[in-house]
Design a protein around this nucleic acid. Sequence first.
RNA 1: GCUGGUGUGGCUCAGCGGUAGAGCAGCGCACUCGUAAUGCGCAGGUCGUCGGUUCGAAUCCGACCACCAGCUCCA
Length: 640
Amino acid sequence: MLQITLKGGEVRLYPSGTTPLEIARDIGPRLAREALVARVNGVLVDLTRPIESDAAVEFFTFEDEAGRRVYRHSTAHILAQAVKRLYPGAKLAIGPAIADGYYYDFDIARPFTPEDLDRIENEMRAIIKEDLPIQRIEVSREEAIRLFQEAGETYKVELIRELPDEEVISCYRQGEFIDLCAGPHVPSTGRIKAIKLLNVAGAYWRGDERNQMLQRIYGTSFPKESLLKEHLARLEEAKRRDHRRLGVELDLYSIHEEGPGFPFFHPKGMVLRNELERFWREEHARRGYQEVKTPIILRQELWKRSGHWEHYRDNMYFVNIDGENYAVKPMNCPGGIIIYKSRMHSYRELPIRLGELGLVHRHELSGVLHGLMRVRSFTQDDAHIFARPDQLEDEIIGVIDLVNYFYHDIFGFTYHVELSTKPEKAMGSDEIWEMATGALRRALDRRGLAYKVNEGDGAFYGPKIDFHLRDCLGRTWQCGTIQVDFLMPEKFDLFYIGQDAQRHRPVMVHRVVFGSLERFIAILTEHFAGAFPVWLAPVQVKVLPIADRHRDYAGKINELLQAEGIRTEFDTRNEKINYKIREAQVQKVPYMLVIGDREIAEQKVSVRHRSGGDLGGMPVAAFLERIKGEIATKALDNNR
RNA sequence: GCUGGUGUGGCUCAGCGGUAGAGCAGCGCACUCGUAAUGCGCAGGUCGUCGGUUCGAAUCCGACCACCAGCUCCA
């Protein structure tokens, strides 16, 4: 008999060879129905895999990340099976689960059309209906190679050849279909309920553009039709909130053929920018930052010295002035360094925190441009901290706290942190990298922040912490970063005079909080669906007289508000009040002041809030107090 | 940059070989109105650009440009 320890610590006895599925059935019909995969002694396995020794067993359902991945991965196999049935000539590449679904890459002569997707989806439904058992088969390397060679699956053969020697090679079979796969999978195709194929796109084999272009089909699946519907509704909602669409509707910014990737900010977009910048300046001044501005164009020599020429040239723009070569800055750091070097520094002055809202230009591939999210010129809310090595950790912590204040306290975002280590194409020794990475790690640990490690994802001059914020639709965006840099100080021979009157090397921290103003504005636009908090709203109040005879009084109210620094618009057009209100609502203006006979008689204003509706009449002074309070506290709850 | 798709007035879109149409927005007139669209009228487009096929091209073909979905990359 086996001793099986369940999640709560309960121990049950089962005969040897019992499967997790049998255990689940024993526990309860609901678990048997919902369990997708089991973890046996820490390893994820199929529910149908017999257990041969005492073990701790845990079950995962669609509620769990692990369960979802298995569910989607099994759906990907069904997709592959359907494609093979309909297009036997298609060769299989890979088909993993991803965040909200899965994809599968195929090598096929003719690209898939939307009609093909419908056909494939129907075939997938048929396979689900057949409820084919999904079986794991372990094979030797030779067998596996022979099997896939005969089937003409050259990509699979390539994958097998690259598996490490000690790796157990497994295949999964469902009906006539067999695929190389580590698993685990759900027990049978019938376990998959609601499916949807979303789109097709080209993708290179192994993500390398020198390789064959494959056709990738994206899809998703859920255990209930209602969950699928919700997911599709979320995608629709994301489309509705798309900042590229809202940017036009709210007249925030535009991008034109005359400058692809170079956005134009309109007056209302500039209000957002300026408010964000004003807030940024206040908070940075308060934390001991000084602001600088460095040139956009600097000699090519500088960029050779900094390493950008070697590591970043492909992303840079160059110009020739009077026969000399210059580069347009893709980063602000060399400028900050030049300022630091412009005079001597004592150990007493450090840390020196030089902030810069720096406009940088980067040549991005044309295919990646995306509204304000991905542009070719953008403003980084940059800062370079020059510190003594003993100050490094505290400085990193200071930035972590600053980021938390911005993201969490002000905008109400949740976020997570990732640590990126030395990339292949890097400057400097492993020791220096280890030192820098260690400082970031210790700072994160001291703040008790959990983080994910991305090996090899650091900048060429140093490791970094990235902050990924999560918007109201659950999407994450990389914004802030903190990069520790021992190399630029070396390259530029930076020093300070220590207590011992000797020269010492400072360490540099590069960091951004918003990341880029452009991207941050795009994220805010989508997060708030254009209904910005009052302190950011391009127009905070619309003054709406009902008829011509109310214009004078309404005009006075409007002037009064403007004199108090409130951003207003005065709608004197000859239109019905309903029409004016509708337009203000569509523009997501937080407050509308309706003014007619009653208001004039009572010397009041009728206040309507964009989401709270009609709030009734009040004296202007009372309204002013209310809105000024919201602005001062940067209130997010603009519902009341 | 690569693969696939799209490009018609400010916006959303119809027309898809016989010489351009709707709704919204804009402008004018009338209505002077109470919390999400008053009515009538007017004006607005070398149909992304260049070239080709054709008696004739917004419609067919090619190249280029831009955009969209991805790949890759990143703030």
